[in-house]
């Protein structure tokens, strides 16, 4: 019971961090149709900026400033990079973001070195929130949960209820119309891209000290973020939210499953198991397979339901 509850909590908080990461990606894709391969790079930059700012003036200002700076950087990137390649089509846009990701991955160690930097959890949040049986639940995890849920609610409200949200949605489907109504459509896209990268930055500020801030952190989450966005349905925030939680929980629990195919046949003499290769295949445990699961889910989803959990049909 204790194990089940702690694992559930762990799965939830991991899933919510994944959501924080993928929400920006989903936002950009749903509004602009651009798959931003550099998304995880902005997550990494968020962590490094937060480290730099927090070591000068503290964590709380960093929590606000770092995402803002990244949002601005993202907006500039859209204005002077993405918009230039837009005319060459979606493939060119995608490749541009791939290039940005490659560059960031090299520039970060250039500035901050290859070692992990000491970006620590703020003192105010470094305590135990509550104890579940004998397992303590750190306050910082609670803070992560709070920010993630807050982000979800805010995004949802802004997009569906506010005026600017309506303009954004309209600009996607009827750009000429929105332009004719006097709105600056390119600027709307710039804004969306900026908000998307700011969200990635925020995830970096929060994830950077919960885990480790180092040059490989972008590569580590890069593809899992795509899995969430795809499984949830490209462009669907609700879908991304559900997919993050489901994948977070599945991954956490699959660690605990020490079963393998050979356990299934234990006791009975199966002739197949005399073969060396098959035996080693059968003795792989589910817990070892854990890293493959998200990609398997993604591929199956794309084959059988390409629009994802909550995506609209094309």
């Amino acid at each position: 019971m204790e194990f089940f509850l702690t694992s559930l909590l762990n799965g939830l908080s991991y899933g919510l961090l994944l959501f924080m990461l993928s929400s920006g990606l989903t936002l950009i894709f749903s509004m602009m149709g651009v798959l931003n391969f550099a998304h995880a790079s902005f997550y990494m930059l968020g962590a490094y900026f937060a480290y730099q700012i927090s070591s000068a003036i503290g964590f709380w200002p960093a929590l606000v400033i770092a995402p803002l700076v990244l949002g601005l950087a993202g907006a500039l990137l859209e204005r002077y990079g993405l918009r230039t390649v837009h005319k060459s089509g979606h493939v060119a846009e995608l490749l541009f973001t791939v290039g940005v990701a490659l560059l960031v991955e090299e520039i970060v160690p250039l500035i901050w070195g290859r070692m992990a930097v000491k970006y620590a959890i703020p003192r105010e949040l470094d305590f135990t929130l509550f104890s579940l049986f004998s397992t303590s639940f750190p306050a910082y995890r609670g803070f992560m949960l709070l920010v993630s849920v807050g982000m979800m609610v805010l995004l949802y409200v802004v997009l569906t209820r506010s005026r600017i949200g309506l303009i954004i949605q309209a600009a996607l489907t009827h750009p000429e119309m929105v332009g004719a109504l006097g709105h600056n459509v390119p600027r709307v896209f710039m804004l969306v891209f900026g908000v998307g990268t700011a969200l990635a930055g925020l995830a970096g500020v929060i994830g950077g000290n919960a885990f480790v801030t180092e040059p490989s952190m972008a590569a580590a989450v890069g593809s899992i973020v795509f899995v969430i966005a795809v499984v949830g349905g490209l462009g669907s925030l609700e879908g991304a939210f559900i997919a993050s939680l489901v994948l977070g929980i599945i991954q956490t629990f699959s660690v605990a499953l020490d079963y393998s195919l050979s356990d299934l046949f234990a006791g009975s003499e199966v002739a197949l198991l005399h073969d060396e290769a098959l035996r080693s295949l059968f003795s792989i445990r589910i817990s070892q397979m854990a890293p493959m699961i998200p990609y398997l889910v993604m591929v199956l989803m794309l084959i059988f339901r390409p629009q994802g959990l909550m995506g609209k049909r094309e």
């Binding site: 694992s7 397992t135 885990f211 956490t252 890293p291």
Partner: peptide, 16 residues
């Protein structure tokens, strides 16, 4: 056995 360099959150292993 866990994948090398890929696990970001070790808490499930710790729980185990």
């Amino acid at each position: 056995l866990h994948p090398t360099g890929k696990v970001k959150d070790f808490s499930p292993y710790v729980a185990k």
